[in-house]
Amino acid sequence: MHKFANPAQFTKIASRVLPWTSSFAAVCSLFGLYFGIFDSPADYQQGETVRIMYVHVPAAWMSLFIYSLMAAASASFLIWKHSLADIAARSLAPIGAAFTAITLITGALWGQPMWGTWWVWDARLTSVLVLFFLYLGYMALVNAFDDPEKGSKAAAGLALIGFVNVPIIKFSVDWWNTLHQPASLSRLDAPAIDISMLTPLLLMALGFKLLLISILIIKMRTILIEKRIEAKQLLKSG
């Protein structure tokens, strides 16, 4: 792991990986959307609106997954002082906020026909909203210092503290009796979902993961280049 923490090494590998991840992301999402919209059955209770699931559920998984990644990157930044981990955490925050926003918006669109309301203050919805606030707080804190190093450290601390929210979101549907339905997939017995619906769901999830890797690489490369430009300008003016 430490071998890849070298920015030059990272850029080299990332540039080679990026075309693959981005094209596979596109392929997976397109196939997932095709199967989800045209080639999967409507739900016997929910009708056609169930198709929102193919965006909503993978996006929700991503919102938690990205926060966990961000917390892990922040921890490795605080422990080993790898600047690349800091850059990764900084880049992950807006991506995670975007996926969380997608989750909340598609959830509202799905809730309107199913529950008859855009929004309810149940445990799952509220805790995801708090997750969204945590992402925004991270982004506000990381840029609030004149010394970027301090911003990174403070925001890394916040990311770690905010991690308490992740298990709360995950288990909120089990701990509290909520309007939001409990998990159908990650259960100890067989998943409670038909294979014709599971295929597009997993394809979309894979597509989103690859999309995340692609955007992350692009963002991290951009920050690395920005840092180099800054350093060169400092050299010139100094």
Partner: peptide, 19 residues
């Protein structure tokens, strides 16, 4: 966490209120 930042008064609300 907000020690030494700009706008620390508003920032602390953004960070702590959700928690």
């Amino acid at each position: 966490l907000v020690l030494g930042s700009r706008l620390s008064g508003v920032l602390i609300s953004l960070i702590i209120l959700p928690l």
